[in-house]
Design a binder for these strands. Structure first.
Lengths: 176, 176
DNA sequence: ACCTGAACACCGTTCAAGT
DNA sequence: ACCTGAACACCGTTCAAGT
């Protein structure tokens, strides 16, 4: 049944990558599918609903590793978030622009807090730590993707990791 | 001479606060000024140019304290950035959406790096530290302002400060 | 110097109607 | 179930013309 819905979603992500978020228009998307814009409203009630579905689909694969130290969990979640955003044109703007609590994001958060708690980090400190790492990853990546002046990916990775280790070091020394 | 230009800018910021970034329309702004939209193009060559001017005017007051420890400089810059964003409706989206290197932002950055260097922090480490703190402040505030579910300002301040201290602690322990 | 009027090429969205 | 045609109420921007 609703497989045309999936096709619309796929085409929307394709158009995002090719033309960017500002050019992602219901009318243009429809013409890519050989259809009129009004036909899209059979599948998504609004453009916003389509954008929400895109975010969910891009962010879905983000996860936190099941095992390892809390340092590894934090690193994996932060890098995974950044990877997801960098994987698509305007990914950071799209994802950070509309991420209400968002089911999946909440799950990642609680899983991380549990990982820290399991390693003996007090609950309150764990929540702050996770919040801080995720805010950093979002902030870094938004700025990274907004800047036109592309310095090489390898150097951007190094700078991101250096900041991440700084925060992890801070968490470690805040432990009892 | 160009004082009507300033009036347009002031009205634009007023409209931003009252109606939000999405409702900030050349046509609506013009009607607020008792004028047609086309008249605005005498003062700003495009809507984007107006938005740039708004960012410059909001972010201008942001500064880093002249004296104090490097910890205080970092705290001041991060809190100042957040304050500026929170001071206007959709401030985070507007500012983070278009901040090319931006004269003033570059000055803040270099002033902070110098403050750390003056305190004996090696140049490379100082740049990473400043980048990390600013990325955190941006990331935290964007998320804070995007979330509808308002928890009290005092608690949000506390959470922001806790993350900031975590990072500052990490910087401190990374010192030689 | 500043503004109007009219136009151009677009938007998102709705809704009756078709197959 | 899926799509068309036509419309509605908007956009940003340009440009000749007015004062």
């Amino acid at each position: 049944m609703g497989q045309r819905r999936t096709e619309v979603l796929r085409a929307a992500i394709e158009l995002l990558d090719e033309a960017g978020l500002d050019a992602l228009t219901m009318r243009l998307l429809a013409s890519r599918l050989g259809v009129r814009a009004s036909a899209l409203y059979r599948h998504y009630p609004s453009k916003q609903a389509l954008l929400d579905a895109m975010v969910a689909s891009l962010v879905g694969p983000a996860s936190v590793p099941e095992e390892g130290t809390w340092e590894e969990s934090l690193r994996g979640a932060a890098s995974g978030m950044r990877e997801v955003m960098l994987a698509h044109r305007d990914g950071a703007r799209l994802i950070s622009g509309f991420h209400h609590p968002g089911d999946e994001a909440v799950a990642v958060f609680t899983r991380l807090v549990e990982a820290l708690a399991g390693a003996g980090v007090p609950a309150e400190g764990a929540a702050v730590a996770v919040d801080t790492v995720l805010a950093y990853a979002n902030g870094y990546t938004i700025e990274e993707q907004a800047r036109k002046t592309e310095w090489p990916r390898a150097e951007r990775d190094r700078a991101f990791d250096a900041g991440l280790e700084l925060i992890i070091g801070g968490i470690r020394t805040s432990l009892p």
